[in-house]
Simulated scan of single mutants.
Amino acid sequence: MTGRSRGGAPPAVLVLEDGRVFRGRAYGAVGETFGEAVFSTGMTGYQETLTDPSYHRQVVVMTAPHVGNTGVNDEDAESARIWVAGYVVRDPARRASNWRAQRSLDEELVAQGVVGICGVDTRALTRHLRERGAMRVGIFSGSAIADEGTLLAKVRQAPEMAGADLSAEVATKEGYVVPAVGTKRFTVAAV
């Protein structure tokens, strides 16, 4: 992690709506966040996952044990911002080690205000989610940490995903054209 060692990051707590609690350290922004807990089994492509609008209002748990090795660059994003509500990793890379990296994953999460947690047994968390199904989750760090009962109540008050109309929240505000590369063969419109 750039700017702070894992041991120097504030404590963090992840609370699922069924009462299961995981403890770790803050990763990314410090504060609190809520969303639907989902997991990603990809060993690469974390930047694309984070910037994919289909993950809006979801807290993504990465099952790969080590995340952040390649850092973040301005070319690999799926959209102009990070859409996940929160991020959970087991062991974040201490530094980005890729020639294309422009900053660390931790720096990008902080810059975009994404609250995360590291040091969590993400495989145990993933197994729990697979067995119990979709549920709301909260991540709390720094001054947002309180007793578990208070945190659980906050998670259970968070909006559910069922029935949510998120397309208007993630759609572009204005239409745009992607210029053709090479010889024009067809005209394609995406709606």
Rank of each mutant, 00 (worst) to 15 (best):
V114G: 09
A144Y: 01
L105N: 02
A26K: 09
V59S: 04
N98M: 08
T33S: 10
V15R: 00
D52K: 00
V60C: 06
L125A: 10
M62L: 07
W99T: 09
V137N: 01
D106C: 11
L129K: 09
Q58A: 05
A111S: 15
V89P: 09
R127D: 14
G116Q: 08
M62G: 01
C118T: 11
A9C: 15
T41L: 08
Q47F: 06
D76C: 03
L14M: 14
A64K: 00
Q112K: 12
Q102D: 04
A29P: 03
W83A: 07
V120C: 06
E32V: 01
I82F: 12
A111F: 10
N98K: 10
F22L: 03
A77N: 13
S143T: 13
V60N: 08
A144F: 01
E32H: 07
L125P: 11
E108W: 15
Y46N: 06
A146C: 04
E131H: 12
E48C: 00
G86N: 12
S5K: 13
A37N: 07
R25S: 11
A85F: 10
L151R: 00
E32S: 13
G119N: 11
S143Y: 00
E107T: 14
P65H: 13
V114K: 08
C118E: 07
V61D: 10
T33K: 06
L105E: 10
D74G: 14
S79D: 15
E148S: 06
N73Y: 06
T70Y: 10
T63V: 14
L109Q: 03
H128M: 07
G116L: 05
A77S: 15
R81V: 11
A124V: 09
R94S: 11
G45C: 03
H56D: 08
S79H: 15
G45M: 03
G8M: 10
S5I: 03
G7I: 02
N69M: 06
G8D: 15
S143P: 15
R25Y: 02
R81L: 06
R136W: 04
D121R: 12
D121Q: 09
A80D: 15
M62F: 12
V67R: 09
S79Y: 15
N73F: 08
R20T: 14
E107R: 08
N98V: 00
R81M: 12
M62A: 10
Q58L: 11
Q102G: 14
C118Y: 02
G86D: 12
A101H: 08
E75C: 01
G133D: 05
I139A: 07
N98H: 15
R81W: 11
M43H: 07
R57H: 15
S40I: 05
A64P: 02
R95A: 13
G35I: 08
I139C: 11
P65T: 12
S54G: 05
Q58T: 11
I117Q: 00
G119C: 12
I145Q: 00
A134F: 10
V110M: 05
G149Q: 07
G19E: 02
